[in-house]
């Protein structure tokens, strides 16, 4: 069973389940999985951060178009483990497009085919039977590969730590209606706050820039009353943290907007640039903004 052309078939186990009397539902599932679809995977495998890594090909068979892309990988991994091979390591958590954990570059596009979707929302029906699918990890100096397709995205956490917060009074909660925010303002802030921090913007940018992420995080706080006390420092500190982490700069190609699963607009980057100019030049009277605590 070490022959990799059989990886992912799973039919032998299905047959034995049926024989063991697992019931009609199991038979139905197994029937659906017989030779409906198969693909060839070209997957980046890397044992650890220091490993050189390389592409390994797998034939994944007996799939169905209704499977999600991650379920397809689960099937492949089940068979790899059954054969005593190391499963393909990849990130996933909620599997409903809201957590930002899944992160695969599928055929050269972060989160694969489809607009406004995360990797877990990609289905096998997006691919033709017999297709060869290339799967790579996010590539950026600031996102080092931990193993296979998993990258360390803690650089984003450090950017948030630099300014993605606001002052809050302790003690009894303030009245919810004490800070007046117009509906339009709330909607705009929410559009920015929809960012799930997956890092697809960095992955697709030719400069591995995190501008869209930083713009979204700065904006949703900077346009609300609660975000005003740290407004200037936030903008400058988060951009500085982005540079310090080794992300590139924005050259306005807007690939980020196109792959963003939450369809965050590059208009937020224009806002970030405005905020930066305001913080550094206009409202500071050319005095530098102190970002250190």
């Amino acid at each position: 069973m070490s022959d990799r052309t059989h990886v992912g078939c799973g039919c032998q186990r299905g047959a034995s389940h049926e024989g063991a009397g697992h019931g009609g539902a199991a038979v139905h599932v197994d029937e659906r999985r017989v030779n409906v679809m198969s693909v060839r995977l070209r997957v980046w495998r890397q044992k650890h951060a220091g490993d050189k890594g390389g592409f390994v090909e797998y034939d994944a068979g007996r799939l169905t178009p209704d499977m999600s892309f991650l379920e397809m990988l689960d099937v492949v991994n089940e068979d790899l483990q059954r054969d005593g091979d190391e499963p393909i390591a990849f990130d996933s958590d909620c599997r409903e497009g809201i957590c930002g954990a899944c992160s695969l570059v599928i055929d050269g596009v972060p989160h694969g085919p489809g607009q406004g979707v995360t990797t877990c929302q990609v289905y096998m029906r997006n691919f033709s039977d017999g297709a060869t699918i290339t799967i790579e990890p996010w590539r950026a100096q600031a996102f080092p590969v931990v193993r296979d397709l998993i990258v360390d995205r803690s650089a984003f956490d450090r950017i948030i730590g630099a300014g993605g917060y606001n002052s809050t009074n302790t003690g009894s909660a303030t009245d919810a209606n004490s800070a007046l925010i117009s509906q339009a303002q709330a909607e705009e802030a929410f559009d920015a706050a929809a960012c799930i921090g997956c890092g697809a913007c960095v992955a697709t940018c030719k400069n591995a820039s995190a501008m869209l992420f930083v713009a979204a995080k700065v904006k949703h706080l900077n346009i609300l009353p609660q975000g005003q006390p740290e407004r200037r420092q936030r903008t400058v500190a988060m951009l500085k943290a982005m540079d310090d982490e080794g992300f590139g700069h924005c050259t306005n190609e807007y690939e980020c907007e196109a792959v963003c699963p939450k369809e965050i607009s590059v208009e937020h980057i224009a806002f970030l640039n405005r905020e930066y100019l305001r913080a550094q030049v206009l409202s500071s009277g050319m005095r530098p903004v102190i970002t250190e605590a």
Partner: peptide, 17 residues
């Protein structure tokens, strides 16, 4: 920019601008 992505992709497709 070159330093920000020392290891490139085998395949990177444009879907944006």
């Amino acid at each position: 920019a070159a330093a920000a992505r020392p290891i490139g992709y085998r395949q990177l497709r444009s879907v944006g601008g």
